[in-house]
Amino acid sequence: MEITLKVNEVQHTLDVEPRTLLVHLIRENLNLTGTHIGCDTTTCGACTILLDGKSVKSCTILAVQANGKSVRTIESVAGADGHLHPLQEGFKDNHGLHCGFCTPGMIMRSIELLENNPNPTEEEIRWGISGNLCRCTGYNNIVKAIEYASAKNRGVEPASTEPQFV
């Protein structure tokens, strides 16, 4: 069936099977391959995107359910001029990624997390990203990355990004 949706501010009209998962539409029809698939039980969150501003696991939404809605993926997060978003900068500067496979989903989830809670505690961050699995980082530096972005967003100087390696 034909659906119309806005993806990263671009309007698309597409003919999709009703069973097509949104994640596949994003990756295969639109070639936005930053959004990843890491499981088949809605556990890992590697496919997290923003749907009308809410972070959702795009493997657990049918593409047709996004009809008339607005999708944001990792590809839209940096500015058109190449300027990185504070979260992207935070992940890079704090070594919040290794293999990079969970990173797009982590960042998309964190965007909403910081919108809802601009100055989260460490515990709030950890619970806030508990729908996103990472196998490489052990999460500590992801927490630091989100704290960094939170500070930046609030106009506060972020804490040092030097590793605390005694």
């Binding site: 070639n31 930053g34 959004t35 890079k92 990624l97 990173t103």
Partner: peptide, 23 residues
């Protein structure tokens, strides 16, 4: 040196190139 990673710049923008991205 705790040099920041060169590979990050593509991964944080969804521009990594993993096997399932290949068409």
């Amino acid at each position: 040196h705790s040099m920041k990673r060169k590979e990050d710049i593509r991964f944080i923008q969804g521009r990594g190139h993993y096997v399932d991205d290949i068409k």
